[in-house]
């Protein structure tokens, strides 16, 4: 509710001015480049608009985004569900620590060639890979967030919920752990977008990742850059959407932090 101060306004505009300077440099460098590997920004942007107006929007871009979202939602849901179980029922800890340490050490992108070999370049394969990528950060943050809930909250909950473990979990532990679960979701979203691209680079015939790779193969540098720009836009859009939801759900947490720090 604070009015933006002069400082905060200049602070933000400095960032935008810097972006403009970089864009200008790109334009100049692109015009001087003779190799064709580095087209000027204006051409890239024109090409970007063209791609967005073409049928690539419905054939490649939107399906990619849909797969990323589906994978993110599935992986996050699984991560939260398992994370709550492992975080709340501490008796499971000795059984699960070692397997989890081992499994999380496997980089998910390295599994993509294997997944393509096993299941082909299918939608379920791609969604599955994205889900697996989102799963880990959400799981680990959920477990940690739940274990770190202040015991004081739990004692209050035991007094005022007639002691039922499930309602303590639902009414107190989950809300108290929300800030950290959200951190996990934010990381999971970023990983989903990366895996969206990676999962379309092996044996695929459509999608944003395919578009970028195919342009590179055809030596269509401007389209390749346009693909990268579209990827960046998709990332910006989804992150902004996430932030908007986060801001509403977590206003209490930001407010409290603002007060105590």
């Amino acid at each position: 509710m604070k009015a933006p101060t002069f400082r905060s306004v200049t602070h933000r505009s400095v960032g935008w001015i810097f972006v403009l300077v970089l864009m200008g440099l790109w334009e100049i460098a692109g015009r001087r480049d003779a190799s064709g590997l580095f087209p000027p920004l204006s051409e890239v942007l024109t090409e970007t608009l063209e791609v967005l107006r073409s049928d690539a929007l419905t054939n490649d871009i939107l399906p990619s985004v849909a797969r990323a979202l589906a994978g993110f939602v599935l992986g996050s849901a699984a991560g939260i569900a398992l994370g709550v179980v492992l975080g709340w029922w501490r008796a499971l800890e000795p059984w699960t620590t070692a397997p989890l340490e081992f499994l999380r050490a496997v980089p998910v992108p390295a599994l993509v060639p294997l997944a393509v070999a096993l299941y082909g370049s299918t939608d379920p394969m791609k969604v599955g890979i994205i889900a697996l990528g989102a799963f880990w950060p959400v799981l680990l943050n959920t477990v940690d967030g739940i274990r770190r809930v202040d015991p004081g909250y739990i004692e209050s909950a035991r007094v005022y919920t007639s002691g039922s473990s499930f309602s303590i979990l639902r009414r107190v532990v989950l809300p108290a752990a929300t800030p950290q679960i959200t951190t996990g979701l934010r990381i999971g979203l970023a990983i989903s977008l990366i895996l969206m691209v990676v999962s379309e680079m092996f044996g695929a015939s459509s999608g944003l990742g395919y578009l970028v790779l195919q342009s590179q193969r055809l030596y269509a540098m401007t389209s390749m850059y346009a693909g990268v720009v579209i990827l960046a836009l998709v990332g910006l859009l989804l992150t902004a959407l996430f932030s908007a939801v986060e801001k509403r759900a977590m206003s209490w947490f930001d407010g409290m932090k603002g007060r105590t720090s």
Binding site: D150, G152, Y153, E155, S156, V172, P175, A176, T178, W252, F253, M256
Partner: peptide, 10 residues
């Protein structure tokens, strides 16, 4: 400790 007993999200 009231700050560990009241729920800050409510």
């Amino acid at each position: 400790e009231y700050n560990r007993s009241l729920f800050p999200w409510l």
